[in-house]
């Protein structure tokens, strides 16, 4: 099935008769990307599943008011990013610890559970990511895994390109250090 362009999706969505079809196409195009973004952020499948559903319910409710001058994928990524950060913030409050500590506790969980397949070095990469502050981890993900341009991440997160570059660079350095030092 060929992926339809965002502008075609929006065009179809604007008509009552083809609204559901348009949303189906949008889901087909973005659901996996958004799931993996959420999954890498929150690690647990059930949490990621809840989040991805929440994201697309919000997309459905607000797509009518979406401004055409923005990119659809940036807008969806923005919703997903906000949902993930809010989720981690709530979880942090429930655990009564700082987000950084929370990340470290998640990292410790990796070694004792079967969250991940893959070899040891892959595990270490994800452990290292869990030691990053939530927003830095999100920026790292969008740049490293999703391979978005800084301008695209900037549109999604509302952060300046300069700040994104600095944050990504710092994240890369921390992860490299973690990979080299942790055995």
């Amino acid at each position: 099935m060929m992926l339809i362009s965002d502008s075609e999706i929006l065009e179809k969505f604007s008509k009552e008769s083809s609204r559901n079809d348009a949303f189906g196409l949008l889901l087909h195009k973005y659901q996996q990307k958004i799931y993996w973004l959420c999954r890498r952020m929150v690690i647990d499948h059930d949490d990621a599943d809840d989040l991805v559903q929440e994201v697309f319910i919000k997309v459905w409710k607000n797509l009518d008011g979406f401004r055409r001058d923005a990119q659809l994928y940036s807008w969806i990524y923005r919703i997903a990013s906000n949902e993930c950060l809010q989720f981690l913030e709530k979880k942090k409050k429930r655990n009564h610890s700082s987000l950084d500590d929370f990340g470290e506790s998640l990292a410790e969980n990796f070694s004792s559970t079967d969250y991940l397949n893959g070899d040891q070095i892959q595990r270490k990469l994800y452990e290292a990511m869990e030691t990053l502050p939530a927003k830095q981890k999100l920026i790292f993900q969008l740049k490293y895994f999703e391979e978005l341009k800084y301008e695209e991440i900037s549109a999604a997160l509302g952060t300046s390109v300069g700040a994104l570059k600095a944050s990504f660079h710092l994240a890369v350095k921390k992860i490299e250090d973690y990979l080299l030092t942790q055995d």
């Binding site: 949303f23 189906g24 397949n117 893959g118 892959q122 990469l125 890369v172 350095k173 490299e176």
Partner: peptide, 29 residues
Amino acid sequence: KAPTLAQMEKINPFVVPEGYFNTLSDRIH
């Protein structure tokens, strides 16, 4: 600055339940 990270393959090490993505759209609908 990060040769170790740069050399790593971008493998997705997470697993999802079988058929998860086939039913996700329906559940969202």
